[in-house]
């Protein structure tokens, strides 16, 4: 199993993120779980584009021409920026919810709404 250890790490990260989202009751921790899930997806995209003994696809003083695939790296750049935007939005939602309900516990918020 050691030859595809990065894929195992991706699955572990995804399961940790899902468990955080499903089992925790604190809004901030749920948002952290979403961030961990985003990291798992980013790692998966990067790992898909790796070639054996390759270097980054930049020609400035490149030691060899065996380069990793550039397209997954570009898509991962997009994914990281969108993750940053999403987490900023989610954290400000958490601030607003704490302002209005006085708590960030999901169960208490549900009781307060009814």
């Amino acid at each position: 199993m050691l030859w595809n250890l990065p894929y195992i790490v991706v699955v572990l990260l995804a399961i940790i993120g899902l468990a955080t989202i499903l089992l925790k009751r604190n809004l901030i921790k749920i948002f952290l779980g979403v961030s961990i899930l985003t990291s798992a997806v980013n790692l998966f995209i990067i790992v898909l584009g790796y070639r054996e003994n390759s270097i980054a696809p930049i020609y400035t003083y490149a030691p060899s021409l065996n380069m990793a695939l550039p397209t997954p790296q570009a898509l991962c750049l997009t994914s990281i920026v969108i993750g940053v935007a999403t987490s900023a939005l989610m954290l400000s939602f958490a601030v607003i919810i704490h302002r209005y309900y006085g708590t960030v516990n999901v169960d208490e918020i549900r009781e307060l709404k009814e």
Binding site: W3, N4, I8, V11, I15, G49, R51, E52, P57, T71
Partner: peptide, 30 residues
């Protein structure tokens, strides 16, 4: 979650790290 984890681990064991399948487009870019 346990069912999903087993499913994902079976999928992850099928990949091979370090040798992408289709590299035509990226080779063109490089």
């Amino acid at each position: 979650m346990i069912i999903l984890a087993i499913f994902l681990f079976i999928m992850a064991a099928g990949f091979t790290f370090g040798s992408p399948l289709e590299t035509d487009m990226d080779d063109y870019f490089i």
